[in-house]
Write a protein that binds this DNA or RNA. Structure first.
Lengths: 127, 127
DNA sequence: CAGGATCCCATCTGATACTG
DNA sequence: CAGTATCAGATGGGATCCTG
């Protein structure tokens, strides 16, 4: 018997390619993982472990820190169900969802300019 | 005899109000000071000390680090004049100037949503 | 399953002093 | 003036182990 599936389709575990140079972006949403968490929650709520999947290598402690900070800032709501084993779901608030426009602006910038930045960096390092 | 004025009007030493909650923004351009440096250079090139003014409290070491990183990424060009005392000017490249659109997106987001974020934070901390 | 508790380290930032 | 050198502190992120 499979567990009841989330309302939303499963997250692609490789939605954040570690080889993608987005880590070179000259801007960041919140802390290191905040932007990726927002994207994980873009299409509906997710459980703790579900979010953890695409965030390759994040430890539970750090994910908890990230989610707590986001909850504090009103970006996500946390819902704990009194079950055993426990189940907790996180969902974007409208405020959290508003960050998507910023992430989109960042992506647009990247498509237009990131290659140039990386070229400049290589050229500089060649000397 | 006053020194030859920069091409551009002087920077307002209080253009970055330390009491302004922009430090609470859930996003950041580059490192801590990068976004502010971009804004300092928005209207033309500036000398090292000129940039340092509005960036209250930045040490020369950190400003140098910031500017070097920006030069590496092709965001600014550094021009040193062989004079005594030395004179160095920094100027945004078109790539660096392209960040202004992102900064603008951030500002737009702030105007619409930052107050709400701060309210959520206060409410959370009240418990 | 969803975390809490500890420990540790790298990085970032700043303070201070000095120099071509 | 525009840095460099050195040192100290804070902070963030991660590894590991443990638990309701």
């Amino acid at each position: 018997m499979t567990p009841p599936p989330s309302v939303t389709p499963a997250l692609d575990p490789e939605m954040f390619d570690p080889m993608c140079p987005s880590s070179a972006l000259p801007f960041q949403i919140g802390d290191k993982w905040t932007g990726m968490v927002v994207l994980c929650l873009e299409h509906g709520r997710r459980r703790f472990t579900e979010i953890r999947g695409p965030l390759r290598g994040i430890t539970p402690k750090v994910l908890t820190q990230t989610l707590r900070a986001m909850e504090r800032d009103g970006l996500v709501v946390r819902t704990a169900y009194p079950e055993h084993p426990p189940r907790v779901e996180y969902e974007l608030t409208p405020l959290g969802r508003s960050l998507l426009t910023l992430i989109d602006a960042a992506r647009t910038w990247s498509r237009s300019h990131l290659a140039e930045l990386l070229r400049a960096r290589q050229a500089y390092d060649a000397n």
